[in-house]
Design a protein around this nucleic acid. Sequence first.
RNA 1: GGGGGCGUGGUGUAGCGGUUAGCAUGUCGGCCUGUCAAGCCGGAGGUCGCGGGUUCAAAUCCCGUCGCUCCCGCCA
Length: 618
Amino acid sequence: MLKTHTCGELRAADAGKTVTLAGWVNRRRDHGGLIFLDLRDRFGITQVTVSDDAALEASNGAAASKNGQDRAQALETASQVRSEFVVQVNGAVQMRPEGFENPELETGEVEVIATGLSILNEARTPPFVISGNQADDVDEAVRLKYRYLDLRRPKLADNLRLRHEIVRFIRSFLYDRAFLEVETPILLKSTPEGARDFVVPSRIHPGRFYALPQSPQQMKQLLMIAGIERYFQIARCFRDEDLRADRQPEFTQLDLEMSFVEAPDIMALIEEMLIELSALVSDKPIQQVPFPVLSYQDAMDRYGIDRPDLRFGLELFDVTELVRNSKFGVFKNAAAAGGRIKGLRYPGGAALSRKETDDLIEYVRPYGAKGLAWIGITGKSDADGRFPPESLRSPIVKFFSAEEIDGIVCAAAAEEGDLILMVADDAGVTNPALANLRLEIGARANLIDTNLLAFCWVVDFPLLEYDSEEQRWEATHHPFTSARDEDWSILEASPGEVRAKAYDVVLNGWEIGGGSIRIHRSEQQMRMFQRLGLNESEVDEKFGHMLEAFQYGAPPHGGIAMGIERVVALYADAPSIREVMAFPKTATGVDLLMEAPSRVDDRQLAELHIAVREPKGD
RNA sequence: GGGGGCGUGGUGUAGCGGUUAGCAUGUCGGCCUGUCAAGCCGGAGGUCGCGGGUUCAAAUCCCGUCGCUCCCGCCA
């Protein structure tokens, strides 16, 4: 080894030892005859003191360097050293002089007095400063191009370390419970349902393609049929869809499947794992244990979204019935058209200026909401607890009767100083619009306790959703998800009413995992495919292997998949999953470091029997 | 596929119709024996993402384009 110790381990007890350290120069402080080098490696920072003055060592009683020339040489070298040079230091560990300790450093009680310093490699001036946190503000494109430098920064290195700890914990937790870790293929078959596949051409089979796994879903079910009973994998998954702060084209899942289980068994296992994990890697308390369980319907009604952030209240209210027959056309028409009129309370929002109030509509626009009705409560209630018209500021109160106003205020549980905000539209607009607005208000009014881990389960998802463009029913989760036992009977008659044996686990408003009990009987799976509008030959071509496998004694089974990056990002308080991936892609799916995707040469294409049709204008 | 934001020395930014394009940091040189974002002095470094247009005059206004980013759609 080129080092005897790391840069993070020397303490007062090591004083007097002769050591060799190696690492990167985090910073150099040149005082002329005395130069300090902060030497950094993965484990920490140690101050190296370089001087040609023998008194430095002698003064503390450590063995003086035998050769003063060594120290002079080291000083000369130190003056040439620059940030991020890779150096090796020989020297004596010494207590720092009284009053010169650095409490910011783990190694701050000691320093290494250099008797030898050699440059192992020089470094160009980096495009951004590695030490400190200045680089937090550097354009992410620069950071991604020089990712290997970005990862030297403690913040990013800490994220990788946290990820490692989390994955290590998950593995050991599952090993302890008799799970078998099995690797499944990366080269699979393209399946029609769901996300776009990344596709890989076959050289041996011209015109044929493999697909990269969107998840190992089918493989893990086949492993259950194979009798594995308890399987897991830290699995890389690929989806050729547009990116987001919480979505990358390739990502890692904890993929898990068990036989002879029901939904509560999987949920209990994962809940136990998350509770232990939280204690291990986070200082934040869990808001509620056991985790609250919300039905999908409940979540949509109260939060407008199936992954509610429960760190704060501000639940939505529904006044559809109350205003159905009001004189306010917008509400009346929306109700008549089968829509919902819902809203929420903005605590203290009555103090907002007219412009600020109007600006709130920008937060609901992207979801298709055409407007935002508002009532500010600026005055006091009367003796009966009602708010008379002069206590309200609103462009719409004139359309409502006193009873209707009272009903709205009551539904909103609004008080003096609050602002009531309402959206009237199709439920598919009202809910997401208000869910988004709720988050915005929660942030603005500082209602979100960022020191909480608010887990919850969302269950009873609809099994199917109607795709109006394709004019057919689609699986909400995936086509292998089982309906609840009592709902199988209405699969054909009322597909929209069928609830799935599915469960999502949500943390602070992020969906971190989802799973289900699967169909394990061939005839039920066939019914499901037919319900999805696949004819027999399609089913046979795409999923014949599954149907056949189910006929050889498939056990009841179910499982879950959890997004590792999302989990790590939440524990790391990172705004994007890119911050917890070693080499992420940009929002346009480009690897700025390797410059992928790239063209391949004609010979490669010829071998693959592929001709590229350039998009026009290229 | 659509919408919003951003793009000025290496980095972060100010300027937003006429400036020798300012500041900070980094960087380079000098001085300096106790610093830890070391200090002090001095220097170099940008033509304002790219292309076109408007104008006597463009970093600044307009159009297009590219890149990054957030969001909608999409994400079984």
